[in-house]
């Protein structure tokens, strides 16, 4: 990964905007921002962003690759789509944020110990297993993502909710034994694998371009 990162730095020296355009989901749109700031002001998580979207776009243009990719900002996105709805320039900001986050993670530059990164990864791993999300397992793995002791503490804190969910049959403890899933799990996993390969190849080829 870091090898890929070095190659990318080499290839796109001075032109992070181009790198984003080539390799980040919906990255081509970054150039269209006119710095009005409506996205930054519209974000419900606004106060927690070190750099709000519009500033990230400016940082991309100003070639601040490290700062952008190691930022925890993109991980604050709640996918509420306020920014997209209000952007006067049609930028799919939510997707660009997801794209930047994914790209940072892929290159190993994303901040360590960022809870959303972990949750997001756990979610993905969970769904990769059977093609559908197993909420109980996801929940439990979430509680234990920072180690056993903290996990027990968190799970204890959440026990009332868990109990409430169970009592209303909205959480099934038996799910731990298996749960829902697609029938053709191998095919499903192959499909995702193929998609991942194609995507990785695209990025690798951009280095060679």
């Amino acid at each position: 990964m870091s090898d890929l990162n070095t190659q990318l730095v080499e290839k796109y020296r001075n032109n992070f905007l181009q790198e984003v355009k080539d390799n980040v989901e919906e990255g081509d749109w970054v150039k269209m921002c006119m710095q009005c700031g409506v996205c930054s002001g519209s974000c419900p998580m606004g106060p927690y962003w070190d750099h709000p979207p519009q500033e990230i776009f400016m940082m991309i243009r100003a070639n601040k690759r490290e700062e952008v990719l190691s930022s925890n900002s993109m991980w604050m996105c709640t996918s509420c789509y306020n920014c997209i709805a209000r952007c006067p320039r049609e930028l799919p900001i939510t997707h660009i944020m997801h794209g930047l986050a994914h790209y940072a993670k892929r290159l190993g530059l994303a901040p360590k110990n960022q809870p959303t990164i972990k949750f997001s990864q756990l979610f993905w791993d969970n769904l990769m297993k059977k093609g559908r999300v197993n909420e109980l397992k996801l929940g439990l793995s979430l509680y234990f993502m920072n180690g056993f002791a903290e996990g027990v503490k968190k799970a204890w804190k959440m026990k009332d909710i868990g109990l409430g969910m169970t009592l209303t049959r909205r959480l099934n403890p038996l799910e731990i034994l298996g749960g829902h899933g697609v029938k053709d799990q191998t095919g499903f996993q192959n499909m995702i694998k193929k998609a991942q390969e194609l995507e990785a190849a695209r990025i690798e080829s951009s280095v060679k371009k």
Partner: peptide
Amino acid sequence: SKVANIVEDKKTGNPVLNGVNTEGYHR
């Protein structure tokens, strides 16, 4: 700044403008 949205302060009737001043990022 392009103002993100306006909400009404129900007590005073004042519109409250929310947004970010983009000259250096001030909410």
